[in-house]
């Protein structure tokens, strides 16, 4: 126990050291303009983010991005899980559904975005791209979670006279929940990429819009601030869903 704790402390310490070095390097490059004007010191970026007069801008953009993200993520989540459940319960359709979702995944979202803009409109494209990325990850996670039920549990429920649906409800689905939660964690950053890409193609507002505008107008601190915000959102989502995954693994394994 103590050994595990000290190993953990070492790994946290190393992590902090790594991040510290990274930030110091960033600051040095920025202060001395080692990579030119487009690389500001991190202190400038933080000062920019801290200025209250810019908060309405950031919170509007962040709000729009998060709204699109949550909507797309939830749609993709349910679509992915339900499709994988259907594929599991209706084996004849599984190969077809597997191939379809792999095909959807193979199309680069950057190529799909213009089509979606025309088809769905500027407002819905970020959510749609987020939903597509989330769908695929959750389809794969749910499929593999359902397929990996341990044999002795399946044997037991068969001998007890459980129908396929009962086995699904009592066994396969609960056993798949940790894997589904792991998929949910992996899907979050992918989903955020979908939203940002969707916003680049002309959404009315959002972090992606901020990034594109700042880039085109050479507003370097604004650009870096927007990117930093994106990273923070992504990390927070990943962390929160990682915690959720730990809870599920604890409960269902």
């Amino acid at each position: 126990m103590r050994k595990i704790r000290s190993e953990r402390a070492v790994s946290i310490l190393l992590g902090i050291t790594g991040i510290g070095l990274f930030l110091a390097l960033w600051e040095t490059i920025g202060q001395f303009r080692l990579l030119g004007l487009s690389w500001p010191p991190i202190t400038d970026v933080l000062a920019f983010l801290q200025d209250p007069s810019r908060w309405p801008l950031f919170s509007r953009a962040l709000g729009a991005t998060l709204e699109a993200l949550v909507l797309g993520y939830i749609i993709g989540l349910f679509a992915g899980v339900l499709t994988a459940m259907a594929a599991y319960l209706l084996p004849p359709f599984k190969p077809g559904l597997d191939r379809t979702s792999a095909f959807i995944h193979a199309v680069p979202s950057i190529a799909l975005a213009p089509l979606l803009i025309i088809f769905l409109g500027r407002n819905s494209t970020p959510s749609a791209l987020a939903a597509l990325s989330t769908f695929f990850v959750l389809y794969v996670a749910t499929s593999s979670g359902l397929a990996s039920t341990e044999r002795q549990w399946d044997d037991l429920l068969r001998v007890l006279g459980a129908s396929r649906l009962v086995r699904f409800r009592r066994l396969n689905f609960p056993a798949a929940l940790p894997t589904i939660a792991s998929g949910m964690r992996l899907a979050a950053p992918a989903s955020l990429i979908g939203v940002i890409v969707g916003e680049w193609f002309g959404a009315p507002r959002g972090i992606g819009v901020l990034i594109i505008n700042a880039m085109q107008n050479f507003q370097i601190p604004l650009l870096w601030s927007a990117v930093l915000l994106t990273v923070l959102v992504s990390l927070m989502l990943f962390g929160a869903l990682g915690f959720f995954h730990t809870l599920m693994a604890e409960r269902f394994r």
Partner: peptide, 27 residues
């Protein structure tokens, strides 16, 4: 039929009572 395997095959997300109740629910 009643069955017990070498591997206890208890469902880890159910407590003792719920595991013993499982055959009723399955039936």
């Amino acid at each position: 039929l009643g069955v017990a395997f070498q591997d206890h095959a208890l469902l880890p997300w159910l407590d003792v009572r719920a595991n013993v109740e499982l055959p009723f629910r399955v039936a």
